[in-house]
Design a protein around this nucleic acid. Structure first.
Length: 200
DNA sequence: GTTCTAGAAC
DNA sequence: GTTCTAGAAC
């Protein structure tokens, strides 16, 4: 067999160009529909486990309503955002259980995946899937938009404006421990360090 | 979002 | 020599 990379997402391999540009960016919509990945659902939202968790506990809270990004948010979405926040908080707490891990709830300023999704993630960041600077800075710099702050901004201004943040810049920031702010030259050194902050 | 890998960094 | 990052392809 001429084994190229096995095509994902049901694309055929015989020159059938089922591959649109950025097809992967819609993967979240497929994951939402897959009962095997659904951790919790109600009439407003679907909660799935992140396919590549960046910490010991990592969930995505997705509204059933189609909302493309933070820019599309309007005051009418506030009840939904509050609901996502509350359910996300409950689920991450339940998942963490007895462990003494903190957590954070929020959105990426410029997400890679289409469709709005709230990250509910424990703050150990102890995961083999957390591999590079972009991963790290997307959760530990202002690239990560805190859910409560986002809700407050929408309440005050009637919209969410992330144009003040330079996403590219934030992702290139030096690697710093999120607990003690120590700086590290590379990912292995950072990862070796952060586990020391986890109470066992 | 991930995987792969060239070449920079060590 | 090996480790690690970062950019292209997917």
């Amino acid at each position: 067999m001429a084994t190229k990379r096995s095509s994902q997402g049901g694309a055929t391999d015989n020159g059938q160009p089922a591959k649109k540009k950025g097809f992967w960016a819609l993967g979240l919509l497929d994951s939402m529909k897959d009962p095997a990945l659904q951790h919790f659902t109600d009439d407003k939202i679907v909660v799935i486990k992140d396919k590549y968790p960046k910490a010991r506990h990592h969930f995505l809270v997705c509204p059933r309503l189609k909302i493309n990004n933070l820019k599309a948010l309007k005051p009418e979405h506030l009840p939904l955002l509050n609901h996502m926040h509350e359910v996300g908080k409950r689920i991450i707490k339940e998942s963490i259980g007895e462990e003494e891990l903190k957590y954070q709830l929020g959105y990426h300023a410029i997400p890679s995946m289409s469709h709005l999704h709230l990250h509910a993630i424990s703050r150990d960041f102890d995961s083999p899937c957390l591999k590079n600077k972009k991963h790290w800075n997307s959760f530990t710099t202002d690239y990560f938009v805190d859910s409560m702050e986002l809700i407050a901004e929408l309440e005050e201004n009637g919209c969410v404006d992330t144009s003040g943040r330079n996403g590219e810049e934030l992702l290139k920031q030096p690697l710093r421990c999120h607990v003690c702010k120590s700086q590290f030259a590379n990912m292995p050194k950072l990862k070796g360090h952060i586990v020391k902050h986890i109470k066992k």
